[in-house]
Each structure stands twice: as C-alpha cells, then as structure tokens.
Design a protein around this nucleic acid. Sequence first.
DNA 1: ACTATCCCCTGACGGC
DNA 2: TGCCGTCAGGGGATAG
Length: 271
Amino acid sequence: MPELPEVESVARGLRRAAVGARIEAVRCHFPAVVGRDPCEFGEQVRGRILEQVRRHGKYLFLGLSGARVLALHLRMTGQFYLVKRAAAPDKHTHLEILLCDRSDKLVYRDVRKFGRLLLLEGSVEEFLDARRLGPDALAVSTASFGRALGGTSRGIKAALLDQSLLAGLGNIYTDEVLFREGIHPLRPANSLDPKEVGALLRSVRSLLRAAIARGGTTVSDFVTAEGRAGGYQGELQAYGRAGKPCRRCGRSMAKTRAAGRSTCYCPHCQV
DNA sequence: ACTATCCCCTGACGGC
DNA sequence: TGCCGTCAGGGGATAG
C-alpha cells in the first residue's frame, strides 16, 4: 500500500521523466477515477504542460500550466507510471494520459479502484485544508509532532496513522517505526515522554529516507513511475511478520488490531 | 469531539 | 475444479 516513500518515489520519477511534457489527450476507462464526467475532465487538462510535481503525505500534486492542479491518491493498489505509448491497456488500467511528442504515456492502473486523480478547483493549500491533512511526516518539527501526540490518549499506532495529525505514514511504516523504537502499538500516544517523542521522530525520518532510497516498498501492487517494483520490502522488520521470530530477540511476533488495521509487533521488545 | 463500524473493490487463499 | 467465506486496507461517511 503506497505510503509516503512510495509516493515520493513516484514524484521523483515523474520529475525526471515527465515534467515539461504537454498533455495531448486523455483516455478514461473508469469514470469514477476522475470523479466527474471524463470528457469534461479531458477537455480541462488537454493542452496543458506538466510543470511541477509536489507531494504532501500520500498525495501527489501535478501542477499544470494555467494554474490547474491534479491531485493523485493511490490508496491501496493504485499505480501511476510511464509506459510505451503503444502498450495496450488491460482491464485494470483506468486512465491513459497521452503526451505530445513522447514515446511514453502516463497510465493510472488500480486493481481495487480506490484511488483517485482529481482536478482541483482551487489551490493545493485549500485542498489540504479541506481534507484536514496534518504536516508532512518528513517536514514536521519535533515541537509540532510532540503536540500532536500529546493531545490524544489513543494508541500510538492509531495516532501515527491519523493523517490529520501527521501525513504520510500507513500500516507498513507505523509497524516498522514502532518496532525500531521498542514501543507497543497500543500504548497511549500521550504517555510518551519528550525524549521518546524526539527519538520516535528521528526514527520516522531515517526509516522514510531509507525506504525512499530503495524506491519504496512493494508488498503487492506498488510500482515506481518507471513501472518497477520498489526494493525496501526485503528490509522490513515487523510488517507482515506475525508468528515469525523477532529479528531482535528471536521470540514469536504477535498480531493485534490497532485503529482497525492488522498490526505486527514483538510483545517482548515493544512495551 | 470522540470512536467504532461500514463501505468501496478485487484477488489471494484456506476449507470442503 | 470450483464454490464460498475471510482477509487485506486508506479514507470518507455515518452511527453511537
């Protein structure tokens, strides 16, 4: 499931290979993905140049000429990548964006159809505000992070997953960072002392940077903008390891639910 | 203002 | 082989 490092990997790939391209035409095979009439969507974006790519949390913002913005969220199984223009779309390919004078096209593919590519009416800031997105996990200050955690007695994992407190972490990286720090996922967020808060945020940053350096984590469907799997899945210490030996103490990893998500942790190392 | 639950959607997998 | 139930989950909506 694409989280901050996966979305950042896509952003970097698009900056390298797609920024500067002009949109020639759009082919939409699943109208819900653009959240409106696909013909109208096509008319609105056709002829515009992809000028810049921004990321906030798990959202990607494609800045087009004429001050219009496309907001992309991959949700569970979304893929946004470049592929040869002649490649035939399969049954999960919902959108094709043809680019002028390019041998590649941009494609949105999504098995579970949860993801969206929306043309914003206003600015990115207005969108972030309306969706109540908190600070990006790679940009948040220690003070702001501490205030967010200190203001809730929910479990730390639920708090880290809450995009209004901190944008970018999902089920994989919350399990990973709590394992790294030896913190039980159900421990109340406001029970962390300032020293633990500081260490946790440093761990969040280093984990996310390491994952970005490897092109993200591919558990099921994620691919980079080049259409390739990420490389961080081999580095995972906690996610998906219930019943397997803890990489630190060797005892069996446990599974529970936190904020409605399956959660893997070591009952011995995480307290 | 909380939190829990449902919903969207398909594929993988276990049991029979 | 195939049928059915269960699980996976981000986030928006809704119920409590």
